[in-house]
Design a protein around this nucleic acid. Structure first.
Length: 270
DNA sequence: CCGACAACCTGACGGC
DNA sequence: TGCCGTCAGGTTGTCG
């Protein structure tokens, strides 16, 4: 499911297979997603040609020939796939195209977002307005992280999950990066020194890049191939409470930090 | 400022 | 087999 590398994987698929296509027909279930999905708005996509596919945090921005943008978030269970064979349970938007199989937005839990926005609406979107730096960009470095952490007592894990600071770093990768950097997730953010901040930033970028290269952790069936993301088997701590640490073999812990499951090693992470 | 929690939903899984 | 409780990768907002 979708964290940043998964969204990036979908974005690449859209850039490769959707850009250049024209919408022939548009259908929606009409069921409310994170926000209501207007039937008229979805229908108005007919005739649009896709001109670009970008990503901001975990949002997909699919650009249209009219200048409007399709803003898509996959939530917890959303997916954007090319799929033939008609609608099935949890399909919420189906766009038939001038060529190839239809593009389907499906989302069981409906925590996702699917909006057609004018340039002005996009610019003012509350979903995008307060986002911090992209973790894979050069703007995200140890200096930036320490600046954001300065004087903060909140756990570093909580800071990393705060989208106003780092845009789109999810729970899995926050856990993995903190393990890689050997930092205890509960460490007060302001007490991370320059060396550890450097290491943490490196680990965040490295784990994200590795996951992107492998097609994400669980989803990558955007072409209906059914091939799962190959990163799951590389997770060192996420989802492994009670199992031995890959470094020291001590049982890994799981405890909630800022309301999220947090997996870590009490010996390796200090 | 910060953590806890609720809210939005459905599905998977473990225990009995 | 089935019923029930618990948990889940996201994001926003409220409360204390």
């Amino acid at each position: 499911m979708p964290e940043l590398p998964e969204v990036e994987t979908v974005r690449a698929a859209m850039a490769a297979h959707l850009v250049g296509r024209t919408v022939a027909g548009a259908w929606t279930s009409g069921l409310r997603l994170r926000e209501p999905l207007s039937r008229a708005r979805v229908r108005s996509l007919a005739g649009e040609r896709f001109t670009g596919a970008r990503r901001r945090a975990k949002f997909l921005l699919l650009e249209l020939s009219s200048g409007r943008t399709l803003l898509v978030h996959l939530g917890m269970t959303g997916n954007l796939v090319f799929r033939d064979g008609g609608r099935i349970l949890h399909d919420h938007v189906v766009l038939t195209l001038d060529e190839g199989p239809p593009l389907v937005y499906a989302d069981a839990r409906r925590f996702g977002l699917f909006q057609v926005l004018t340039p002005r609406q996009l610019e003012r979107s509350p979903w995008l307005r307060h986002l911090g730096v992209e973790p894979l960009s050069d703007d995200f470095d140890a200096g930036y992280l320490r600046g954001a952490a300065r004087g903060r007592s909140r756990p570093i894990k909580s800071l990393l999950l705060d989208g106003r600071v780092v845009a789109g770093l999810g729970n899995i990768y926050a856990c993995e990066a903190l393990f890689g950097a050997r930092i205890r997730p509960t460490t007060p953010a302001g007490r991370i020194g320059p060396r550890r901040a450097e290491r943490l930033v490196e680990e965040i970028k490295a784990v994200l890049q590795r996951a992107v290269a492998k097609g994400g952790t669980t989803i990558s069936d955007y072409l209906g191939s059914g091939a799962g993301g190959r990163f799951q088997q590389e997770l060192a701590v996420y989802g492994r409470a009670g199992e031995g640490c890959v470094v020291c073999d001590r049982p890994l812990r799981n405890r909630a930090i800022a309301g999220r499951s947090t997996f870590y090693c009490t010996r390796c992470q200090t």
